[in-house]
Computed example of a mutant assay.
Amino acid sequence: MKNTFISAAILSLLFISCKEDFNPLGEYSERYSLNCVIKVDTSFQVATVTQSYLGQTTDPFENTQDPFVDFVYIRMWYKGEVYIFNDSSITRTDKSRYNTDIKFYYINNLNPQPGNDLEIEALLPNGRRLKSVTRIPARASKKYGSFENKIPPEIGDIMHLQWTSDETNLVYHPRLYIIYNKTENGVQYRKSVPVPLEYYKKGGEEIPIYPNPSATPYVNIKMETINKLMKSISDGDEEKRHYEFMYCILEVITYDKNLSLYNSSSNTVLDDYSIKLDETDYTNITGGFGVFGSLVKSTFIIKFNTPYLESFGYRNGFE
């Protein structure tokens, strides 16, 4: 579980190239990138430091030397305390490009809270320093009167889920999940399935479309989409009573101003707490490149209406 989390947290690398008329590879310029995204829901925080390289061809993916920088001294300040990062690695499963382990720096004793500042500094072996600051964003909260508390809604056929925040100009990434239990061979298993915004028809296949990060503080999902997903969960199984539905969970991940600016400049989806820096030169790192930011996750419970579940033959396990 830890390895999966770490792998998701390792940041993609920044590649830099330049052109000159007489040399398609350009002149080598030594640059460094510090990447770190602080998460409030864990004490395990990860950072990476990488360097640019001089490729042998115009294809950057032909480089097989890991650009990770070893022996970097990374410190973080939070509420007057100093936290020192350790170095570690995990086995690389995809060795199509690099044969070395995935390296990273980490601390495992920091649980920062919203509204507080964090400062990071990376001292490289050559004496260069990379610095940055972030303020942890406020948690999103329900906007009462604009947040459906049960499925289906009392009025209309759209689930309108709106939240609010004490801060402005931030980016949010909402994700809705259905939580249910399924009995198999007398054993009950807890399962979850993400809810798409809609389905896109491509040929004879229906492709689910999920919410992307945006500055819009709400998400609308048609009951037609939810109904289709609810039905598909037990397709081909005549034992509908083996399905006990609990509730839906809406997760809203709030990006700090640094990650919000990054998202706006790159128009790129951050996959589960990671960040990719090969599409933009956006940086908030003094002395180099990269991103230092923070995010916080808010969770809201949405119940099912019992008659609605019974219309599919399901049971309600959270009345």
Rank of each mutant, 00 (worst) to 15 (best):
Y180D: 07
P213N: 03
R135Q: 13
Y247W: 10
G156L: 04
V171D: 03
E244M: 15
C248H: 01
G236F: 04
G145D: 09
G203K: 01
Y210S: 05
P196D: 04
P213C: 05
H242R: 15
K228F: 06
L250W: 02
R175G: 07
T225N: 01
E148T: 03
V219D: 04
Y210C: 07
T134W: 02
G204I: 08
T254F: 02
Q162E: 13
K150P: 00
K231T: 15
L261K: 11
K257R: 15
R128Q: 15
V171Y: 06
P194M: 08
S214M: 07
N212T: 15
L170G: 00
R190I: 12
S234E: 08
H160N: 10
N220A: 06
L259Y: 02
P174Y: 04
Y255T: 03
E198R: 12
N227I: 10
L130T: 08
L161N: 00
G186P: 00
E167R: 06
I249R: 11
P208N: 05
E239K: 15
S232Y: 06
D235C: 11
I155F: 01
V187Y: 09
T225L: 02
Y255A: 06
S132L: 08
S234V: 03
Y172V: 05
E154H: 07
S192G: 12
E239W: 10
I209Y: 04
T254I: 04
Y189F: 12
K143P: 02
K202A: 11
N169L: 12
E148W: 00
P152H: 03
I155D: 00
T216S: 12
M230H: 01
F245Q: 02
V193D: 05
K228T: 11
Y243R: 07
Y144W: 14
P194Y: 06
V195F: 06
V171K: 01
L130V: 11
Q162S: 12
P211A: 15
E184L: 14
H160V: 08
A215N: 15
L130H: 04
A138S: 13
T183K: 13
E198S: 12
N181P: 05
T225A: 03
T164Y: 08
V252I: 09
K191L: 12
N220H: 03
Y200C: 10
A122R: 00
Y172E: 04
E167Y: 06
G204V: 07
R135Y: 08
R241F: 14
N227S: 15
L176I: 08
P211D: 09
V133Q: 14
Y180K: 07
G156F: 00
I158L: 07
I136L: 11
N258C: 05
Y255K: 04
E184C: 11
I221Q: 01
Q188I: 13
Q162R: 12
H242E: 15
D235A: 15
N212E: 13
N220W: 02
L170H: 01
G236E: 07
G127C: 08
A122Q: 01
K142Y: 07
N185E: 11
P152Y: 05
H160Y: 08
D237H: 03
Y247H: 10
D235Y: 13
E167K: 06
